[in-house]
């Protein structure tokens, strides 16, 4: 349990940090990638032309969120599935082991 508490505290501090920054400054919380683009523009005096463009861009912020959410959902699904699979497997091997040992000692107690 100790580790869970430490992690929970870190997550809480992180949330508090966000609430503090967002209420005391007018930060936009844009992407750091976009800021890097700004630095490139400064360094090259705005002369840099990207050598390629994305084939396809999400037509709106909503579609972009959709695809990001899809990415997270797929990942979470796989993680949850296999953790559940391992857990169930452990429990079933444990219960067969204990029922076998019960039979061998002819104890009437069931688990």
């Amino acid at each position: 349990m100790k580790l869970e508490i430490i992690v929970a505290v870190i997550v809480l501090v992180f949330t508090a940090q966000f609430l503090y920054i967002s209420s005391t400054t007018d930060a936009e919380f844009g992407g750091a990638d976009g800021q890097a683009e700004g630095v490139i523009e400064e360094l090259t005096d705005g002369t840099y032309e990207p050598i390629a463009k994305p084939f396809w861009e999400p037509p709106s912020g909503e579609i972009e969120s959709l695809l990001f959410a899809l990415q997270a959902a797929l990942g979470a699904l796989v993680i949850g599935y296999f953790f559940g699979y391992y857990r169930g497997k452990n429990q079933s091997t444990k219960s067969t082991e204990s029922s076998q040992s019960n039979q061998s000692t002819e104890s009437s107690q069931s688990t």
């Binding site: 966000f18 920054i21 930060a27 919380f29 844009g30 990415q71 990942g75 979470a76 699904l77 993680i79």
Partner: peptide, 18 residues
């Protein structure tokens, strides 16, 4: 899948960007 999940989460940070 863990990489999938974490790299989809754009989180706000102290610098006021995500």
């Amino acid at each position: 899948a863990y990489i999938f999940v974490l790299s989809s989460l754009k989180l706000p940070s102290v610098t006021g960007s995500c």
